[in-house]
Amino acid sequence: MKPTLLSLLALCAAAFANAAPVQVAVAANVQYAFADIAASFSRDTGIAVQPSFASSGKIATQIMNGAPFELFLSADNEFPQKLAQAGFTLQAPKSYALGALVLWSKDPQFNPRQWQQWLAAGSGKVAIANPRTAPYGSEALRVLDYYRLSASVTPRLVSGDNIAQAAQFVVSGAAQAGFVAKALVLAPQMKGAGRWVDIPAASHQPIVQDMVLLKPAAANPDARKLFDYLSGPAARQILQRYGYRLP
């Protein structure tokens, strides 16, 4: 009986010590990688993490209107910059990853070697993230421009609310193909769903992903620990495993 009671007390103490999990807003392309990083961080430090996933634009809007996030992992470097200029951050943004785009499809005809011809000749919908709020969407448009595919593909574009919805359009077969983050197709959850091909980085602007500590983090030292952890070896290894290049 006694050890049980003791361990229960210890558990309560631990629960109180970690009363406030770090509130993190995470761009949808990082959701699977971040889940692994958060698990590793909690294992190493005993600090709980509570992530919310959405498009970077939505998160930025929410932060500007008082969302209590302490840390923001964006899919680009513009939204964190905007937040810094508007005075919502504790310090300057810092890059944590460089994103990569892939073209992804479940179509049996999909030929990754000749994806441009296949894409131009196709007739099905092509999913991207909303170009106005998600950098993976706007870079996908640049890719189409670069390969002169705009004329044939633009009329078939459908945009997801964020990159995860674009991926879901591909998984459900509603769209024939989609430009998504490499991190999503490398996630274990997506394993075996269709095939994908790397989009050459030269065809678009680099997707520099910044993170930033927000004002509410001032009251929670654990938030800074996670911020530092994200630049550490454990997090970098996980990010690489999900196809990100490192800054």
Partner: peptide, 20 residues
């Protein structure tokens, strides 16, 4: 799928502008 002129209705347009 947020396609201008096809499926981007007014309620979605509000949502888009707020996010942007």
């Amino acid at each position: 799928g947020n396609i201008p002129g096809v499926t981007r209705v007014a309620s979605i347009a509000v949502y888009n502008e707020v996010e942007a």
